[in-house]
Amino acid sequence: MSTRTPLFLLAWLLPVLGVQAASLSPSSLTMSPGQVAVVTVTNIKGSLSMTNSSPAVAAAALASPRITVSALKAGSTTVTVRDKGGSKSLRVTVTAPPMTVSPESLNLTAGQSGTVTVSNPNGSVRAASSNSSIATVILSNNLVTVQGKMAGSAAITIRDSKTSRTVAVTVTSNGGGGGVTSTEGRLLAAQCFQCHNAKGGSTGFDRITGESVNEIVSEMKEMQAKAASEPEIMHSQAMIYTDAEITALAQYLASLSGSGSGGGNSNGGKDNDDD
C-alpha cells in the first residue's frame, strides 16, 4: 500500500470510523441587506474549503476558522464548508428590511413645514394625517412634507405594503406680535359673517369669499384710507383691524371654497369696493 491514500476514500470511511464533520455556529442566518454576520467553524479536520451557492444574495469570505457573511439583497443562499470530516451547510436568508421613518416626532409652528424621510419602503407608500386642521401631508419620492396649520396635535401615519409607522406632530401657535394662527384668522373672519355671510342669507353686501389674499388685503387698506374722508359703515369697520389681523382673516377667507351666493348688490347702487 502506498502512503498517499485517496482523500475521497478517507471521506468515505471516516463516518464509518466515527469521525465528525466540522460544526458551524450559528447554524443558520436571517439577515437584512447590508448586515454582516460572522460564522465560526469548529472541529476542523485538516484544511477547510467553502462554497456559496448564490453569492449575489450574500457574500461569504473564509478566513479560517471564521466566515464573514455580508447580506446583499433579498433571497437565500447556502454556504457549505468542507474538510476531512465531511461537509456542513449553513442557510442564509436575506429579507428586505422593514420600512422606517425619520424623525418619529415633529414640532412645528403654525404655517411651518417639516419633512419626514421614508427608508426601505416595500411596495407603494401612503401617508395620512389624523387631523388635517392641525397638520397636512404631501408625499413625494419617499419624502413626506408635513405642514403645521394650527395649534394642536396630530398623528401622521405612513404605510407601505407590510407595515405602518406613526410620526407624532405637535403644532404650536406663532406667538404674540410676530404672526397669527389659522384659528385666529378663522375667528376674525367669523366676525365679518354677521353681514357678509359666506354661505347664505342676503346677497346685498359684497361677497368676501372667492377672492385672493391680496385682493382682500388691498380692499381693506383702501377702505381704511377713506375712513376719515368718506363715512361708510365698512370704512369704519376696516379701521378695527391691524395689518396682521387683516392678513390673517384674508388668508382664512381665501382658503374657503367660496361657495356662497352673492357678489352682486340687490339694491343696485351700493358698492363697498369704492373702485
Partner: peptide
C-alpha cells in the same frame, strides 16, 4: 361710525344686514 344722515340706501342695507345676521 354713525350714518351722516338717514338715507334710503341705509334702509335697504338694513334688511341686508338683518337677513345676513338671521342666517349667520
Amino acid at each position: 361710525g354713525e350714518a351722516p344722515s338717514p338715507t334710503g340706501d341705509n334702509w335697504k342695507d338694513m334688511f341686508d344686514w338683518a337677513e345676513n345676521l338671521f342666517y349667520d
